[in-house]
Amino acid sequence: MTIKEIGEQIVEEFGLFEDWMDKYNYIIEMGKSLPVIDEKFKTQQYLISGCQSKVWVSAEMKDGKVIFKANSDAIITKGIISLLIRALSNQSPDDIINADLGFLDKIGLKEHLSPTRSNGLTSMIKQMKLYALAFKAKEG
């Protein structure tokens, strides 16, 4: 699936929730089920420091696709990370670089991506795109 299609799918899923509590319970559940990043990546090198919560992100290239792994010390941040990974992981560097993540806005999570929230998510998206750029340059 393309990033756009995954985004649409997520918007559709969130459309089923009747109130904010269902929505957040779902995000929390997703946070819990996010594959835990290998402890070896939980280091300063992979840390994106937010004032509010910490985020770790690593990336590798497999068959022309970028595979992201990430984690956070806050469960809601983790839940949102899992949405981002679902959309951006296993995509080509070009698609990642050009990705439009408007779906986060549509499901009412925009405030979590505000730079002033400083939970590491905005920096994480930037970092994911930087990884994609680096892989693209390497691939030539």
């Binding site: 904010w20 509590m21 957040y24 929390i28 509010q52 919560s53 010390d73 806050a74 469960i75 809601i76 941040t77 979590h112 939970n119």
Partner: peptide, 12 residues
């Protein structure tokens, strides 16, 4: 419970 998570739910 992480303070960010608590603050987010309290805001809701």
């Amino acid at each position: 419970i992480h303070q960010y998570d608590a603050g987010t739910i309290l805001d809701q």
